Amino acid sequence: MSNNASQWRVGRGVRPVPFCLLFSLLALTGAQAHPAEAQREEASRQPTDEGAGAGMSPKMAPIGLYPLWENTGHVLGHERLYVGTQAVEIGLLDRVQLGGRPMSFVFRTPNVHAKVSLLRNERLSIAAHAEALVFLPGASEAFTSSNYVSRVDTRDVALTVVPVGATASFSPVSWFQLHGTATVMGTFGNEVYEGRATLGASVVAQLLVGKHHAFSTHVGEMGFWNHDFTLLGASYRVRVRWFEAQLGYFYRFTPDGRQSSPLLSLGAYL
């Protein structure tokens, strides 16, 4: 076609029929390409799930609802920030997430935690995480931890708790996700509990309803052969743009009896 390009010029001695055919062909080609280009532009404007920001799906939570024993395999995107009643988190390099639990500081329990992404693809995300909490003298008299509510006495001596574990988040279909967490919690600095290690495992099954809502069931066992408590619960999570809210109700079955409590978490993605 390049060798005969001159014949398509509109001028004297050139028949209009080939020009009309070419014009029609170009118009048809442009009409077919426009939807694809529009789709690509629209996709480029949508944030990815792993980027946490305003477009994060409800199933891609950066933290678990039940403290210490639940987590997710997802991490916040680079320099993304989550500020909530349950935790304050920041993502670094799309692989690392650092944070703390601000309410625990109010109840004399300084703390910090970190999570590192080990594997991430469309269906499976795996992350390792660790946390350190220091229960200062008197902290055991307040509700500061999902495990150590009335089981540990720190009225006179401080106690350091270090949970270390890993979480796998698996999504076989787009509307369902499983979060499995295995944790070993060590205690230090108190003669009564020095060197104690508690093994725990939890599973959260999450059903995604539409773009903004998710319902979850929670099951966990902490202690196993040295039984500490069994966890059962249900929760609801809503995610609208930058705002997130989670509400759950949990039962703890311990050797000393049964406890139940609601959990509420409010947060914003920045």
Rank of each mutant, 00 (worst) to 15 (best):
R15C: 08
A132G: 15
L199K: 06
V112F: 01
G53S: 15
G11D: 05
A205N: 05
A168Q: 00
L232R: 03
A87I: 07
A127E: 03
L159I: 04
G55W: 02
R101C: 00
F215L: 12
Q246G: 04
H213L: 14
A268V: 14
E131L: 12
F19K: 13
L208P: 00
G64S: 12
R80C: 10
A38M: 06
N147E: 13
F135C: 09
S260D: 15
G248S: 09
G53Y: 07
A268Y: 11
V75S: 05
M222S: 00
S145P: 06
Q97P: 09
V157L: 07
A201N: 05
P16R: 06
Q39T: 11
E194L: 00
W242N: 07
P35Y: 07
L21H: 08
V88A: 14
G73R: 03
A33E: 06
Q259V: 12
H212P: 03
A33K: 09
N226Y: 09
L22Y: 15
M1I: 14
L232T: 04
T230C: 02
G200R: 00
S2Y: 12
H129I: 04
L98K: 06
L21P: 06
V164D: 01
H129W: 10
A33D: 10
T198S: 04
T160F: 00
V134L: 15
Y148I: 06
A139Q: 12
N147P: 13
P172E: 12
A201K: 01
Q259G: 12
V17F: 10
G186Y: 05
Q97Y: 01
H212Y: 15
S265E: 12
V88T: 14
A27M: 14
A142F: 15
T167E: 00
Q97M: 06
L25I: 15
N3F: 08
S261Q: 12
T198K: 04
L159F: 07
R123Y: 04
Y82S: 11
R95H: 08
L264K: 03
V116I: 01
S24M: 13
V240A: 10
V134D: 08
Y251R: 13
N4M: 08
D153V: 02
Q32H: 07
S117M: 00
L270F: 15
A245K: 03
G99D: 00
S235A: 13
T85R: 14
E41A: 15
A27N: 07
R101N: 09
V203H: 06
N3H: 13
R40N: 10
E37L: 14
A54P: 08
S57N: 07
L21D: 12
I63H: 11
A54Q: 01
S265G: 10
R151K: 09
H218E: 05
F243I: 11
T48Y: 05
L98Q: 06
N147Q: 15
A132Y: 06
F19T: 04
T85G: 15
E244S: 14
P110M: 01
S174D: 15
V116L: 00
E194Y: 01
R45S: 10
A214F: 02
I63R: 10
G189Y: 01
L207G: 14
K115R: 01
S6Q: 06
H74M: 04
L118A: 00
M1N: 13
R123Q: 00
A43S: 08
G200K: 01
A127N: 05
A168I: 00
Y148E: 15
S174I: 04
V162T: 02
H78R: 09
L263E: 11
G257S: 14
V204E: 14
